[in-house]
Structures are given as C-alpha cells and as structure tokens.
Design a protein around this nucleic acid. Structure first.
Lengths: 310, 310
DNA sequence: CTTAATGATGAATTATATTCATATATGATA
DNA sequence: TATCATATATGAATATAATTCATCATTAAG
C-alpha cells in the first residue's frame, strides 16, 4: 500500500516545498509526482496536504506520514550502504559523528590507524546534524558519536574515551599572562572565543562563570581552531581548550596557558553507540583505537612540554 | 532499490522457511517470490541466502536485511493503521500491551470508560510479545505498556499508576489460615501458584523468599486467575495477589488473605510510553482514566471488606 | 529408483509508474 | 484587470516492473 517511494516523495516535498523542485531532486517528472501523490491520497482515503493556492501544507495525516518517513528512510539508507559495502568485500561502514571541535586533531590519527588495521571497513565522518548527535545516533544517521555531552537515553551504550583539564589560552603579552590560576572575575572584561556550539554546552560557562554570576564581555563563535588561536595571539580574545591541545599550540604560537580555578576544570570525552551495535567487531576496534590515540595525544605532548618547561 | 516488498518477503521467508509457504502467506505465486529474491540478490550483488539443498539459510547480509525489516515493518504498519483510522474519522489507534495478569480486572473497566469518552479512538490489547513488552513499545508494536517492571531505557516515559500491597491467599482450611502475618519459612512446604512470567519477575521470590534463602516446595504456573483461586481453595497451593484483587475473591470463595511480613510487600504498577507520544491527547487521556480506575478498583472493595469484616 | 514436493526459469501477461503533451490555476507585475 | 511566467493537474501513450503460467530441475523421503 504505502511504499518507500511514497515516503521519499513526502520527504522530498517537505524539503523542497514545490512539486517541480522535488521532482527534479528525485529525478522524476513533475507529472509523475503529481500522479503519485494523488494516487496515495486516493488509496488512503485521506488528504495528506492542504492545497492553499500553489502552496502545499501537510495535514495531520501528512505529518504522521512525514514523521514515519524521517524515521524509516535513514535506517534503510544505512542498511543499503552497508550491504553495498558488503558486496564490495567490505565488512561494513562506520559513520562517525563528531560534536567536539578539538577532537579532529586526534580523530584523524585514530581513523588513520583504524583504516590500516581494518582495510575492509569504510569510514565516514559527519559533523552536521539535523537535530543533535544523539538524535543522529538513534536515527541511524551515524553509528558512533564522539561528544563531551551525554544524555542518558535508552538503548545507547557509553564509553569514556578520556578525561582532561580545560585551560585558558591568552596571548603572551596579555594582561593575564602572569597569573598561574584564573578566577571567574578575571574574565569579566575579556572576549571569549568559542566553537559554535549552544552556550549551555560550554563548560566554562556552566561550570565556572555562571556559578559565579559572571559573564565575559563578549562571546564570539569561531569555526576554525587555527583562526581561534590566531585571534588569541593577536589579543582579540581568549579561548578555552583541552590542556593536551593547548600544549601543542603554546609550542608554536605566542600564547600561554593558564589553569582554571584551583581544582581545574575537567571534561570527559565519550564515544556513544547504539546498544545493539556494541558487539560489532569493527566498532569495538574503533573504540579501542580511539582510547589509545586519545591517551597518547593527550599525554605525550604533555610530557614533552613539562620537560621543556622545567 | 530495496523496497518494502523485499523487506516483507525476507521476513515472510524467515517466518515460513519455504518459498512456497511464504508465497501463499503473501498471496503471491511461488514463482513471483523466486523472481523477486533473485532480482534482489542480483541488484545488491551479494547473496542473501545460502541454499543448502532445499533449505535457505540467511547469510550475514541477509541477517542485516532481516533485522532492518523487523525494525521498519512494524513502524510502517502502525502508521498505516493510524492513517486508516484517521480516514474513518478516528483520531487514532491505541495499542495497549499488558504484562500484568491481575490487571485485566481493571483494564477492562478503564477501556470501557475510555471508549465512551473517546469514541473516535480505537483500542487494541496485546499480551503476547516476541521479546519483552519494552521491546514491543520501542518497536512500535504497542503504544502503551502496563507493567510492574520498569527498565530505564532512553526515549520512554514512565507514569506510575498505582502502588499496592501483595498478600498471600490460602484456603479457609489451610494450616496457615490463622496466621496474621506470613514469614518466608512458612512457605517452605507450600506449592506456590503463579502466573506464567519469568521467575525473576516474581516479587515474592526476589523480595521475600530469596533474601531469606528459602524456596517454596514447588512453583506451578497457571494462566487463569479463576483457576488459580480454584486450586487455592482446594488446597492445591497458595498464591500471591494484589490486596485489592484478593479482597474481591475472599468475598466469594473459601479463601483468606494473609499479609506478607511486617512491612508488607508492596508493588508498583506503571504505564510506559514512548517519549514522543507523551503529548498525544488520547494517550494522556488513557493514562488519566487508568489512574482513576486503578485507584477506585483498589480502594473501594478494600473499604467494603473492612466494613464487612469488622 | 520412484515419487511427491519444492525451487528455478523463460515467455507471456498484467499491473504500475512515468512521460509527453496539454490544460488549468496561481501569484506577481504592469 | 490583463498579461506573463511559473506551478500544478490530467488523459493518453509508453516504458518499466511485477506476476503468472507452464515447465523443468532438484531434492528428500519412502
């Protein structure tokens, strides 16, 4: 009765608004779509769209069908991809979602090692999500999510990859540079450079500044870590990075790291997967490699630097 | 590429083993199926079944496709049913799963009230699950689960319907009948009549007997509550029931209730739903009615009996 | 070795989806 | 409000895909 074709149509129609545009996206004629949706509504005996002039608006029934489409299609797509991979002698596809900007540093290495050890598994990295990474995981857009934020939802399995301190980075000539420890107050007049994530996901705010009821002068979102460091060096702001990553940068740029509060501000990094995938060989392997690489990345420069500094 | 038809075929084939049988289940000719699966394997470029003589066994790829089918088809089926219901002017279908034998007593009443108040919603009761009720909920086989057992899994919402005491029922002439409170030791030589659920789900064992390292002489599983009471009255065993239900039976059968331990053995009853369904009007309504009915059912006979007994 | 039953296959048929050509409707603009 | 560019609807023709029919090949059981 309802076919996947219909689900694809209803989704495309939702994304592209007009029949003509959707048709071209689906490589079909406008006429074909028109026939299909008429057929579908006729068979179901219920309107899926309200036609207001040349605009289509989903009815309640249409919404239900769209929701179903958005739930089913990614699952099927994943299966098809994996089958195609199987057909080419691959063991599978691993789609990694990343919700953690500094992670790319070690993730690239980890994937490198993984690809060598598992030449039959393909890897795909996804960092834009329709909603959240968690959603992406549950909806089969990705198979594994690297994130510092966990939501305890059913059906997922959580692996802790690492724990590290966050430190503040300031320019060598910055007024704060001689502090050994930063207090919330110190940041009152600073511009804080952050990655473009929702503010409630910034530990420096939720764990450090908010409890002290202090706001930085301005929060500026920057995509690229290099640019962020550049701006820090040029005294256009200060930024917060994992200590192991900060250690890399203080070697090559005119910036200094300062510890945050007496206890430090620590953060954990997790790899999250669907429970049913926990036993899949190449997924276990990837988690294991990630743990190793994260720990090497975070410890070795640390050591070097501390030797260097003493 | 892969269509729903294929998923249905792979599922039917898994359930019915042979092509011929599956074909008749799907109202197709054996030839049609044979063509379809050949086409599918050809297009995917990978074997989905290994043919051992006339037996089909799924390959790893086939397993993946079957798993996908089992995940997708119930969701779609649910959507189709709901759409059909919409088409007939219904607001929707509520499929209730029940994992609690004594619940039928009040559930029937609750559904009665619900159907009167919401004439446009259809109701379906399901009490056999492929795996667990929780699975059924997450896989869209049911929309609401009535159970005393909660597993905290992601994406589900839990409502507490009631809390009540469990009591022991024995025949009027039973040797334990004059006890006011039962101890674990008292049950050493008794046959315990229970509903057919896994032993780890029986609170009388997990909460009462196991901690005292005591086992009843024999545990006999019985489907029907009437038969269970019948056997209790005939001194073929003793049984554990919610107190409110026990109160109903002691009025009409030669059985007595005895409280369990000094604190009593209390149990909670939950209604569990998918988080995304929480706001649906008729689901909220059903939960509300259930709470009311459970409380009336469990309180009113209690009152009557205590008046009667004094 | 037979036999009854299952699965496979090519050709014919039927059902379904798509396009083409064209008509109708809509919204913007003069 | 007339015009135009653009969008959707529709019937008939066509192309594609699914199903059946008739038949053969294979298999497990007696």
């Amino acid at each position: 009765m309802i076919t996947l074709k219909h689900l694809k149509i209803i989704q495309a129609l939702h994304e592209n608004s007009t029949l003509t545009r959707s048709a071209s996206v689906l490589y079909l004629s406008q006429s074909a779509l028109s026939h299909q949706i008429r057929y579908l509504e006729e068979k179901l005996g219920i309107a899926l769209w309200e036609r207001e002039g040349r605009n289509l608006r989903l009815t309640k029934a249409g919404e239900l069908l769209l929701q179903t489409a958005q739930q089913l299609l990614p699952i099927l797509e994943q299966t098809e991809k994996t089958l195609k991979a199987y057909a080419q002698g691959c063991q599978g596809i691993l789609r990694i979602g990343v919700e953690c900007y500094p992670c790319y540093e070690w993730l690239t290495k980890a994937i490198g090692v993984f690809l060598k050890k598992m030449p039959n598994v393909e890897v795909e990295i996804i960092n834009k999500f329709q909603f959240s990474g968690h959603e992406g995981l549950l909806n089969y857009h990705i198979d594994i999510l690297i994130t510092p934020d966990i939501e305890k939802t059913a059906g997922i399995h959580i692996e802790t990859l690492a724990q590290y301190n966050l430190v503040l980075l300031v320019a060598n000539k910055h007024s704060l540079v001689h502090k050994t420890i930063i207090t919330p107050k110190d940041l009152t007049h600073e511009t804080l450079l952050t990655f473009p994530v929702p503010l409630e996901r910034l530990d420096i705010l939720t764990q450090f500044l908010n409890p002290a009821h202090i706001k930085p002068k301005y929060i500026k979102k920057i995509e690229s870590i290099e640019l962020m460091l550049q701006m820090t060096a040029l005294r256009r702001g200060v930024c917060i990075l994992p200590e192991w990553l900060a250690n890399e940068f203080i070697k090559k740029m005119p910036v200094k790291k300062i510890h945050i509060s007496t206890n430090g501000l620590s953060q954990k990094l997790f790899a999250i997967l669907r429970k049913q995938d926990k036993e899949i060989n190449y997924i276990q392997r990837f988690v294991k490699i990630s743990k190793e690489i994260v720990n090497i990345t975070q410890k070795s420069p640390c050591l070097k630097t501390s030797v260097f500094k003493q």
